[in-house]
């Protein structure tokens, strides 16, 4: 949103602003307000999840055990690493080092793509384990353990949470790619690097959501 506003603009600051500081503060506050809406957007899922977990503790603990915690853990590490490189890219933007912006962003994008890859592999494994509700959910696991009906609610929440997170990842990857492209073209300098910071905020936020998604879905293994 706001970063695109600034990107397409030829004049800096934009005509409605008095100076660049005002524009920079406005863009930062705008992004944070948007992120506040995102907190509540994901928050609905967490609220529902924890209410149902209180209600069906056994089914939800079994659900957590049916997921591959190590894949989730690896993904967390990958995403934290990606966030680290975006932070480095923002730092590079502040000192106006074009090469370092692009290099760090490309590493971050590669890690992000890796995350998506692992995530979809996981979806494949869950399909194989007959865990997808309404598609092939089976009341008996491949190992012969019975599964509670309410585990379907767990799996639904799993797919909705990780699905929306993956969607945000894909949007974020596109944004980072656009920023990297413009950085390579020399659009940003030490004086003007707002879009890099704003895009960075978004990417860190996606990371932050995952930090909560991971323990919520994978680690609450005891009823």
């Amino acid at each position: 949103m706001s970063q695109l506003t600034a990107l397409e603009h030829d004049s800096y600051p934009a005509e409605q602003f008095e100076d660049t500081q005002q524009q920079s503060l406005a863009a930062t506050l705008g992004m944070w307000t948007f992120l506040a809406t995102e907190v509540l957007f994901f928050g609905v899922l967490f609220t529902g999840f924890y209410m149902y977990r209180m209600r069906w503790p056994d089914a939800f603990a079994d659900g957590a055990k049916d997921l591959k915690w190590y894949l989730g853990g690896i993904n967390t590490a990958v995403l934290l690493g990606s966030s680290y490189f975006v932070a480095l890219a923002v730092e590079a933007a502040r000192s106006g080092d074009r090469r370092r912006i692009v290099r760090n962003l490309l590493i971050a994008i590669a890690l992000g793509v890796m995350f998506i890859g692992i995530k979809f592999t996981e979806y494949g494994i869950e399909y194989h384990d007959h865990l997808v509700p309404s598609l092939n959910f089976s009341s008996v696991s491949p190992e012969g353990q019975p599964r509670a009906t309410q585990e379907q609610i767990f799996m639904t929440y799993y797919f909705v949470m990780t699905g929306f997170h993956a969607l945000h990842m894909i949007v974020g990857l596109c944004v980072l790619a656009v920023i990297a492209f413009f950085a390579r073209r020399g659009k940003f300098s030490a004086a003007y690097h707002n879009p890099v910071e704003i895009a960075g905020l978004y990417w860190h936020f996606v990371d932050l959501v995952w930090v909560f998604v991971f323990p919520t879905l994978y680690l609450l293994r005891h009823p």
Partner: peptide
């Protein structure tokens, strides 16, 4: 650190906290 709240204006911290506070109300 990554999102620079510590190094930004207090206003930014308030905006960042608002979403979580309201989620706290909901839950």
């Amino acid at each position: 650190y990554f999102m620079h709240v510590k190094f930004s204006h207090k206003q930014v911290a308030a905006f960042a906290a608002a979403g979580f506070v309201w989620l706290g109300i909901l839950i």
